[in-house]
């Protein structure tokens, strides 16, 4: 094989590693984690990235080395065929299997935290995905859903900071995915199912709520805003929104943003 092609093969692991070394500094990396459990997700991500990265680099280097060493133009040795090696086959079956079993056990705690250990708190809000928006409902002053004082908002999820937040996720039409990148939360919304989602936010601020499941041509429109605020600010916002919803007169000053 031409030396040029060999070097091109070598460029793949070199550039691949370089891209990953460059990206975090340039801002193309994981979004800021503001959640309590997110470190587990990130840790698993880095763990799997390191593992697959090492295997990737090793494989690419081997590919380069073979291509370089056994160049058909310079190598006059005749080709030798074998019918495989039982030992090698056992090795390359057991090693990946053992690795996968290890990962499966290693990630159990993270999985349980995100999907099984539901906090014992009342549901803060019900989020209903539909093409192409997030309809959000809070139980209102009486703390119960499906009553007259439910508070309805759209694309604007507010939660208090440093609290266990429990949300019920629904879909009105097709599959959507409730994705809070800064909270390392991603959960499919499935029509006909009520799926609980929980998290705990550490920092106040405004963050993205996006749909992570291609749900139709307007998928890109399905962007909401997550506002994490202090408990008192959250209560005030909820009370104001509830009061505005009960308006029997046009508010004195027109809403301006």
């Amino acid at each position: 094989m031409n030396k040029f092609w060999c070097l091109l093969f070598l460029a793949v692991p070199v550039l691949g590693v370089a891209a990953f070394a460059w990206a975090p500094g340039a801002g193309y990396w994981l979004p800021r984690d503001i959640s309590d459990h997110g470190w587990q997700i990130d840790h698993l991500f880095y763990f799997v990235l390191t593992l697959t990265g090492a295997v990737f680099v090793a494989t690419e280097l081997a590919l380069f080395w073979f291509a370089w060493k056994y160049d058909g133009r310079t190598n006059m040795q005749p080709v030798r065929f074998t019918h495989g090696s039982h030992d090698v086959e056992v090795l390359w079956t057991l090693a990946p299997a053992a690795t996968l079993v290890f990962i499966a056990i290693y990630q159990m705690n993270a999985w349980a935290d995100v999907k099984m250990r539901q906090p014992d708190v009342p549901v803060l809000a019900e989020v209903t995905a539909r093409q192409f928006e997030w309809r959000i409902r809070y139980p209102g002053a009486d703390g119960r859903f499906d009553t007259l004082d439910d508070v309805h908002v759209v694309n604007d999820l507010h939660v208090p900071v440093d609290r266990d937040i429990l949300i019920t996720l629904k879909s009105q039409d097709v599959l959507h995915s409730f994705f809070l990148p800064n909270l390392r939360i991603k959960q499919d919304a499935v029509p006909g199912m009520k799926i609980p989602v929980w998290f705990r936010a550490r920092d106040v601020g405004e963050f993205d709520l996006v749909c992570a499941e291609l749900c139709g041509w307007g998928h890109y429109k399905m962007k909401g805003r997550l506002t994490v605020q202090s408990a008192s600010a959250f209560q005030q916002w909820l009370a104001e929104t509830a009061a505005a919803q009960e308006a029997t007169q046009e508010p004195e000053v027109e809403e301006s943003e």
Partner: peptide
């Protein structure tokens, strides 16, 4: 104008008109 802006901002639930709340004013 406020009425049309309201429809655009809040969408029309029960129809296919979605909310465009996060577009700048």
């Amino acid at each position: 104008d406020a009425d049309l802006l309201h429809t655009l901002t809040e969408g029309i639930p029960g129809t296919a008109m979605p909310s465009f709340k996060l577009l700048p004013l």
